[in-house]
């Protein structure tokens, strides 16, 4: 058997059949393994969605037990991913490297082997992507919460607690009129004693909850931004496919019906590309406007925070070069 006439003899044909059947068996085993993993993911995520509300109901205000529960779920998902990677590394890749050394490049066996390897890797990648998507979706479903009543309740509790705060020296009411996010000196208006006011755990959480509420109120901008980005990507892909069908004449002359269509797609794409960052900007601007409405005394701090965030995301803004 020579290197350049592999596949001609009877022996080679038998080897070729053996290769095909070995690859098919391995691929079937991979499919069966992925199906088993999917069953396990179904059980894990449905159990997580079912049990999480009861964990949350008995949890402390910082949600530590839920955090451990969701970490355990993510850990289980991670170990499934590792098992799949191990199968690829120990059962798929060694077969590929064993045959790729003996088959001559360009032969049918070689291309079957390559396609088989790509197919297996793609199946694993798609499964992983799907797993990540499902884990994110389940987490979002479980953690979804309306922050409007939560925030209103927190503010109400805080003001009620403040009404009962008296001076340690003379017992007069301290008359607290602002939200303190951490311990502060409050002087008694009657005896001038410096009281150390400790606002309590609720007040320390107010800023954090206000941020979540502001994000909730601004979510429609983020959704619009993501939609616009997806549109831009899809238009770019359409343009790419159309470009591949252009004839040489159309390319050189830069005219013709397909070229016109390409230009119209490009103008839509450019519009989507310029609108996406504007929507992101409006999302963040709206978050901080809402935050200032909720906690007006922190306006200066919100502005500084917005500017630093804006500088950060604008730094990574980039535009495609289509060169039409």
């Amino acid at each position: 058997m020579g290197l350049f006439n592999w596949g001609q003899s009877q022996e080679d044909k038998q080897e070729y059949e053996a290769l095909k059947s070995e690859l098919a068996t391995l691929e079937n085993r991979l499919d069966a393994f992925l199906a088993k993993l999917n069953e396990r993911v179904d059980a894990l995520l449905s159990g997580f969605i079912e049990e999480a509300p009861s964990v949350m109901a008995e949890d402390d205000r910082f949600g530590q037990a839920y955090y451990r529960f969701s970490s355990a779920m993510k850990g289980q998902a991670g170990s499934m991913r590792e098992k799949l990677r191990e199968v690829l590394e120990k059962q798929i890749e060694p077969v590929y490297s064993r045959y790729s050394d003996t088959l001559s490049a360009g032969s049918e066996g070689y291309s079957i082997l390559h396609e088989w390897r790509h197919r297996c890797a793609r199946k694993a990648d798609e499964w992983e992507e799907q797993l990540q998507h499902r884990v994110d979706e389940a987490t979002e479903q479980v953690e979804r919460k309306d922050y409007e009543p939560v925030f209103a309740q927190m503010m109400n509790d805080y003001w009620q607690q403040c009404q009962l705060i008296n001076c340690r020296q003379c017992g007069a009411n301290l008359n607290i009129k602002q939200v303190y996010y951490y311990s502060a000196y409050v002087a008694c208006s009657h005896c001038q004693t410096q009281n150390i006011f400790e606002p309590g755990t609720i007040a320390r959480d107010i800023e954090h909850t206000a941020r979540k509420l502001a994000e909730q109120r601004s979510k429609h901008f983020m959704d619009a931004h993501e939609r616009r980005k997806r549109e831009e990507r899809s238009l770019y892909q359409q343009m790419h496919e159309l470009q591949l069908t252009l004839s040489m004449e159309e390319r050189v002359k830069r005219s013709g019906p397909k070229y016109e269509q390409l230009l119209s797609l490009e103008s839509k794409r450019l519009q989507a590309e310029s609108e996406a960052p504007e929507l992101l900007d409006r999302y963040y601007r709206n978050i901080f406007d809402e935050l200032t409405k909720l906690l007006p005394d922190l306006e200066e701090h919100h502005e500084k925070f917005f500017k630093s965030l804006q500088a950060n995301y604008q730094r990574y803004e980039s535009k495609r070069s289509t060169n039409l």
């Binding site: 205000r61 008296n166 309590g200």
Partner: peptide, 25 residues
């Protein structure tokens, strides 16, 4: 998983809730 998440002790002890109050030197 749930049993372990609920029964595991937090590092640094249980979270405490404290209301607004005052102290003075």
């Amino acid at each position: 998983m749930k049993q372990r998440a609920v029964s595991q002790q937090s590092y640094g002890g249980q979270a405490e809730n404290s209301g607004a109050n005052t102290e003075n030197a």
